[in-house]
C-alpha cells in the first residue's frame, strides 16, 4: 500500500500502538464512562492540543472514512486545520466540513448542531478526564471514589455553589452520570451541548493524551447532567439570534464589533450556519 507521509505508517501510529489503543477503546465502550488507562504515545503535536483525540482517530480511521475536524464548532480555526492536515498528510483520507458527510468527527469544545446519525463516531479531545480532579487532585483517591461510586463530593460542591451564588456555576465540562454508574467529564463542551450526549445514535469516544485515558459513551446510552430537584439542569440561552442565519436555537459566539459596547452574535457551528444561509 502506498504511504502518504514517507517513512510513517498509515495514520502515523505504528500498528502495535494502534492495537493497544483499539483494545482500550473496546473496553471503554464495554464500560461506558469508565476511564481506561492506555499507553499514550508522544505525538508530533503538543500535549493539550488534541493528542488524545488524534490517537483515537488514528486508531479507528480507515481509508474509506470521511473526517471532519472542528474546534470551537468551526472547521477553519487554526488547530482544527492543523489536525485535519495531519490526517490528510498521514492517512490521505477524505475530509469534509459537512457534518452530514462525515463518518468521524474530531472535536474540541463543541458538538455539532446538526443531529448526529447512527454510524458516525464523535472523537472528543479531552484535557482533564477526571471529573473529581478539582475536588481531589490525587489519582489514587479518585480511582477509589469511582470504584465505590462515591460521588457525594461533587453534589456537595454544587450545593455550595447554590448556597453562595444561587445557582450552579459550572458552565462547561459539566459533569454527567453515564448509564447510571460513572461520573464523567464530557470534555470542555458548553453545558448547552450536554443534552446531545444523551441517547445519541452516534458512538462517542473521548481521548486524553497527556493524562493517558480513553473513555466512551456507546450509542443509545443514558447520559444525565448532574443536578438537584430544586435546581434542575439548565443551559445557556441568548436573547439574540445569529446575525448570519437567524438561528435562535444554536449556540452563539459573541463578537465584539467596536470598543463602544457594540457586539453581535453568530453561530459557533460554522457548517450549520452555512447550511442555513446557502
Amino acid at each position: 500500500m502506498t504511504q502518504t507521509l514517507a517513512g510513517y505508517n498509515f495514520a502515523y501510529l505504528d500498528e502495535q500502538t494502534k492495537r493497544m489503543i483499539r483494545r482500550a477503546i473496546l473496553k471503554a465502550v464495554a464500560i461506558p464512562g469508565y476511564q481506561v488507562p492506555f499507553g499514550s504515545r508522544e505525538m508530533p503535536l503538543p500535549y493539550g492540543w488534541g493528542t488524545g483525540g488524534i490517537q483515537v482517530t488514528a486508531s479507528i480511521i480507515g481509508r474509506a472514512d470521511v473526517l471532519k475536524v472542528i474546534d470551537q464548532g468551526a472547521d477553519d480555526t487554526t488547530n482544527a486545520i492543523s489536525i485535519r492536515r495531519f490526517f490528510a498528510r498521514t492517512a490521505g483520507v477524505a475530509t469534509t466540513e459537512r457534518t452530514v458527510e462525515a463518518t468521524i468527527i474530531q472535536t474540541r469544545h463543541r458538538i455539532p448542531e446538526t443531529p448526529l446519525r447512527a454510524g458516525q463516531i464523535m472523537v472528543y479531545q479531552v484535557p482533564i478526564p477526571e471529573p473529581l480532579r478539582w475536588l481531589e487532585p490525587r489519582e489514587t483517591e479518585t480511582r477509589t471514589m469511582h470504584a465505590l461510586s462515591e460521588y457525594g463530593a461533587m453534589h456537595v460542591r454544587f450545593y455550595e455553589d447554590i448556597a453562595h451564588h444561587g445557582r450552579i456555576t459550572t458552565t462547561y465540562d459539566y459533569p454527567v452520570i453515564v448509564n447510571d454508574r460513572y461520573l464523567m467529564r464530557p470534555s470542555p463542551i458548553p453545558k448547552f451541548d450536554n443534552q446531545k450526549l444523551d441517547m445519541s445514535p452516534a458512538l462517542q469516544l473521548f481521548g486524553a493524551g497527556r493524562e493517558k485515558r480513553i473513555y466512551a459513551v456507546p450509542p443509545f446510552t443514558k447520559v444525565k447532567s448532574l443536578d438537584f430537584h430544586d435546581h434542575p439542569f439548565s443551559v445557556e440561552s441568548w436573547d439574540a439570534a445569529c446575525s448570519l442565519c437567524g438561528s435562535t436555537t444554536s449556540y452563539l459566539d459573541e463578537v465584539l464589533t467596536d470598543d463602544q459596547g457594540g457586539r453581535m452574535f453568530v453561530c459557533s457551528d460554522t457548517d450549520y450556519c452555512r447550511s442555513r444561509t446557502s
Binding site: 500500500m1 505508517n9 498509515f10 500498528e15 494502534k18 492495537r19 483499539r22 477503546i25 473496546l26 465502550v29 464495554a30 486508531s59 479507528i60 480511521i61 480507515g62 481509508r63 458512538l203 456507546p218 450509542p219
Partner: peptide, 20 residues
Amino acid sequence: IDPVDDANAVFRQVLDALAH
C-alpha cells in the same frame, strides 16, 4: 493480506458490534 487495512477493517466491525 494487508496488515494495516485488514486489521482496521476487523477492528471497526468489532467496534460496531460492541457499540451495538
